[in-house]
């Protein structure tokens, strides 16, 4: 982009020098440069800032649930502890590892896209997608168990003694266990929805990668989808201890 000539206040709106903005008026720049941007750097910066703003929005979206969690846990600490014991720490832990690993492969995919290794980028994206599916499968088994055990939100909270964790089987059923499972299903459900959306977007980026749209000069979409995926991972990193590891 050209710089301003501030020392000419009288001629305030002169035309830009044609050579000052070489990639002006679409068609002159590289193929990936959209018509309304002047330079690839401007396009990259805009995309990146837009993604960060979107992620800020995502954080605020989840923040409501985190506030809800704090309020209810402070109201019913014993009930939350009881309910937390009903969750399967092994499956939760496995899912944490799966997501952390997928975050690594997503980051590596960005790296290989930056150096122009198309084949490796595609492979790493597929591994990330596979991890996302693995996460959902594990989550599915967890959900099935909760349904069978009657560990459901609000009205539908009717635990079946035989399915409860051994350590809590002799304890009385807490009155507000339904609140915990309401929050549990909202938090993990909304997070799971983000995983599913992530799979869709990553698949689309994988297709574009296979079509050869990315190069050392242009890898913005890979970078952005990885950012999104890191956020999905990060939220799980908070959900896991808050829900599974109470006391």
């Amino acid at each position: 982009m050209s710089t301003a000539t501030t020392d000419a206040p009288t001629a305030s709106l002169e035309e830009a020098q044609p050579d000052a903005a070489p990639q002006d008026h679409g068609g002159h720049g590289p193929k990936f440069l959209a018509h309304h941007f002047d330079t690839p750097v401007q396009q990259f910066d805009a995309a990146k800032l837009g993604m960060w703003l979107f992620l800020a929005q995502e954080l605020l979206f989840f923040s409501g649930l985190f506030v809800l969690y704090s309020v209810y846990r402070s109201w019913y600490p014993a009930d939350f502890s009881w309910a937390s014991h009903q969750l399967n720490r092994f499956m939760g832990g496995a899912n944490t590892i799966v997501l952390l690993f997928s975050s690594l492969t997503a980051a590596l995919a960005v790296r290989s896209a930056q150096v122009g290794d198309r084949k490796k980028t595609g492979m790493l994206l597929l591994v990330t997608i596979a991890c996302a599916f693995a996460f959902l499968v594990i989550k599915y088994f967890e959900y099935v168990h909760k349904f069978e055990a009657g560990l459901l939100p609000g009205d539908r909270f009717h635990p079946v003694a035989a399915h409860l964790a051994a350590s809590t089987r002799d304890l009385p059923i807490p009155q507000h266990g339904g609140s915990f499972f309401g929050i549990y299903f909202m938090m993990t459900g909304v997070h799971g929805l983000h995983v599913i959306i992530g799979i869709g977007v990553m698949f689309w980026i994988w297709l574009r990668n296979q079509r050869g749209e990315f190069s050392e000069q242009f890898w913005t979409p890979v970078d952005l989808v990885a950012l999104y995926w890191h956020l999905v991972d990060l939220i799980w990193i908070y959900l896991f201890p808050l829900l599974y590891l109470i006391d």
């Binding site: 939100p153 609000g154 009205d155 009155q175 507000h176 609140s179 309401g182 909202m186």
Partner: peptide
């Protein structure tokens, strides 16, 4: 789904 988050009857 009767989540009960805003319902005093369910805490």
């Amino acid at each position: 789904f009767g989540l009960g988050i805003f319902d005093p009857r369910l805490g």
